[in-house]
Every structure is written in C-alpha cells, then in structure tokens.
Design a protein around this nucleic acid. Sequence first.
DNA 1: AGGAATGATTCAAT
DNA 2: ATTGAATCATTCCT
Length: 362
Amino acid sequence: MDDQTRLMHSHGVGMAGHPGLAQHMQDGTAGTDGEGRKQDIGDILQQIMTITDQSLDEAQARKHALNCHRMKPALFNVLCEIKEKTVLSIRGGQEEEPPDPQLMRLDNMLLAEGVAGPEKGGGSAAAAAAAAAAGGVGADNSTEHSDYRAKLSQIRQIYHTELEKYEQLEIVSTGGGYGQNLKKNACNEFTTHVMNLLREQSRTRPISPKEIERMVSIIHRKFNSIQMQLKQSTCEAVMILRSRFLDARRKRRNFNKQATEILNEYFYSHLSNPYPSEEAKEELAKKCSITMSQVSNWFGNKRIRYKKNIGKFQEEANMYAARTAVSATSVSAQGSQANSPSTPNSAGGYPSPCYQPDRRIQ
DNA sequence: AGGAATGATTCAAT
DNA sequence: ATTGAATCATTCCT
C-alpha cells in the first residue's frame, strides 16, 4: 500500500508521458485523440487513488470495473516497468537474524522452571526440586507445594495459549499450497490474510514474490517481538511466584521441640568439638526429621551464636549437660566416659583456649 | 508494636 | 566443600 501511494505520487500523471505507455496506448483498440487518452489515464488513476474512500461494495465494483477497463493492461505494464526501475533502490535486506541471546536466556529459564517444554511432568519436577532446595519440613509443606504448583500451571497455561497465538510454524512449501497445514492462530492468519491481499492486489499492481516474502518476514519479526514480550513477562511472573512461595526465608518454621532438643543435646555433649561428622549429621537429620543441610545450618548458627555470647547460653548448657549426665549414669553404671560433665560449663571448651586436637578454636 | 529468637542465605576464606 | 560471619525474613514472646 505504501508502495502504491508512493508510486502514484512520485510519478503521478506524468506517467502519461512515459514512453512505454505511449507504446501500449497505440495497441489500444479505441481512442482517437491523445487528449482523450490522457483524460482516460487521469480518470483511472483518480479512481484508484480514491478507491479506499468508497464503501466496500462500491470499491469492489469499482475494482472490477477497473480490471475490465480497456486501458488496464497498458497501465499495468507501465507500473511494472516503473516498479522494475524503483525496486532496485529498495535494498533487498535479507538479514538472517541471529538467535537473540536474550531470547535464548528467556527460553532456557522457562524451560528450567517447567513453564515451557514438555507436559506437566517437567513443571512438577522443577517445583519439587525447588521446594527440596528450599528445604521443607513436611507438615503444611505439601499444601504450599500444591498451591505453588497450581499457580505455576496457571502461568503455564496462559503462557501456552498466548504463545500459540503468535507462534509461526515453519512454512513447508508443499508444492504450492500455503495455508493448509498451518495452525490456526493470529500470526498465521494474519500472514495468510496479508498474503492473499497482496496476491489479490498483484492483479492491479506489480508485486514480486520477493516483496511478499519480505512482508511476511516483517510480520514474523513483529510477532516474534510479541512472543518475546510474552516470554519476558512470564519469566517475571514465575520469578515473583518463586520468591513468594519458595524462598525458604519467607516460609521459615521453627523446628519442633523434640528436634531442637536432640540437636541441643548433641551440641552440648560435643561442646568441645561441635562439628558433627557426615554420618552424625545424617543420623541427627533422621531423628529430627529434617534435612542434612538443615542440620548443618542449625549447627552453623548454633556455633556462631554460642560463641558470640556464651553467657547467654550458660543456663541452657548446664541444663543439657546435666541431662546427658543423668542419662549417662542411669543407663550405664560404669563410671567411664571422659565426658563426665560434673562441672557442666567447664566442658564448654568450644571457644575457650583448651588443648584440643580439634579443628579451629579461635 | 517491637524486640528477641531462629532458620536460611550469602559471601569470603580455607 | 565446609565454615564463620553478617544478614535477611519470619515467628515467638512480652
């Protein structure tokens, strides 16, 4: 359309003087005087120019009339010639766009989050993995989970239905028929619509297949950018969802009393070296029904907080020391164990400058 | 409401 | 990879 108006305006009525036109005009059967022909051409051009002002029916009729006009072949040939000359100035920019790194990033992320990619399996797997990383204690964990999953699949669904609209299938030129094996969506529908329009227009003005191709690629680029936006906002939505549901800091639950007792028991009975081995951690995790990393976190926090303010923990230390002492003496009457905390806090050598074959003390 | 307690995360050092 | 330290975000307690 732009081409049309540009063509018309730049060459306008001056086309009447075009050598090719003169030649074609001589082929014409009717028309006796040159003035009349000029008038004819002017009329035709005027009608073409104003065709968009008409109502649909009128325009249709007008188009038909123009197509049957005796001067039509001549004018068409002239337009072809002019086009041939001007089309050279239109750079045949056939830029094969390289895969956009940002788009790839978005795609990868959506895939990782289970939004894109295969069916539900991926989504729940990702959710499970994420939740596991967040370290659920159990309890209401499962409800949080399904909540998260529901929201995620909601996003997923919206994403897919939206994406489908703008997706363009590879056009496999099977013989000659475009359009048959295309998925029905906004992009393809619009593309075929434009292509049909151009093809229809090619009856009245010269349009090369290259141009149609170019137009199609422009449309595809536009739809691609829409897709990009969709992906971007989907990513944002997922990130927000993730931070709301899966950031463990947001969903912190204190361990139950029994668990903290077990942990404290171990800590204070190993106060000289409160670094449980891998196996010890595993056992503690099992006993407390928490994960190993939670055990590690707990000990990490405990060590640093104990060290920071030993005084504050004195009472607690005494309590657990006494408890283990009682259990030790009651369970086994043998007066063994160098671990006898008769003076409880004295065993608290963790930060104190004791002789220890342990790790750092400082 | 506000501070203490607490589990988790981050980051640098080892 | 593990740890200490600082910090965050939530829960508990008064």
